[in-house]
Write a protein that binds this DNA or RNA. Structure first.
Length: 207
DNA sequence: TGCCAGGCCCTCTTTAGGGCCTT
């Protein structure tokens, strides 16, 4: 389980709920290997319907831009190849996981990779942060940013930097030699109050 | 056309409600 690389992904969408007909309009992702970003994927996709003015202003993605974009089917086929069998990470992963699974389902594919959530991990690692939104965590951790928000690749890139930063903080604070993906998954599931004890116990076994 | 979610997490909790996150 620990030998896969990690895909950090982010979707822009027409709304909040694939179960009520919302579709993806942009996907961005970075590939992380040995705790470094080594590849990127980005594409707009035409959802075949007009997006609201709210989404246009929220993302900066316009109906005009989407009219000349490739179909969701075409992009998701390519994105499935990019993901390969790697582990998946997103900020508030339940959101992106729902959209990923819905769009894969439409092209008769199924996700087999494990998913982890950078927001749930950050709540346990940085309980003192002013909030656990991506923008706030980027400021709080003084992470690299191009100043662009709510575009898929920019958000995936920032989430990637956050993930790398959390892994490095765990390594330096608890003296882990390596941070397996499933350690991050398990950390995101323990209660916030038990997180420090959980990490100390694991760190002890790691030596 | 316009409508819309859901999982986590805290607390004045568990026979519930509401804020946080994501677009």
């Amino acid at each position: 389980m620990g030998n896969y690389s990690i895909i950090v992904l982010d979707f822009e969408t027409t709304g909040l709920s694939p179960g009520y007909g919302d579709r993806t309009i942009e996907v961005g992702a970075v590939l992380i290997k040995n705790n470094q970003i080594i590849d990127r994927f980005q594409s707009l996709m035409n959802p075949g319907m007009r997006i609201s003015s709210f989404i246009e202003s929220y993302t900066g993605i316009t109906n005009k831009m989407l009219r000349s974009s490739p179909s969701i089917t075409e992009v998701m086929q390519n994105f499935a190849s990019f993901m390969a069998q790697n582990h998946l990470v997103a900020h508030n992963a339940s959101f992106d996981r729902r959209f990923l699974d819905a769009e894969l389902n439409r092209i008769n594919k199924q996700r087999r990779q494990e998913f982890a959530c950078s927001m749930l991990v950050s709540r346990r690692l940085y309980p003192e942060a002013p909030s656990h939104s991506l923008a706030t965590l980027v400021r709080y951790k003084k992470l690299k940013t191009g100043g662009v928000y709510h575009r898929a690749l920019a958000d995936a890139e920032m989430t990637g930097h956050l993930w790398v930063s959390m892994v490095n903080d765990l390594k330096s604070e608890y003296k882990f030699r390596t941070i397996p993906f499933d350690l991050m998954q398990r950390l995101s599931k323990v209660s916030k109050t038990n997180a420090p004890a959980f990490l100390k116990r694991l760190a002890g076994k790691d030596d």
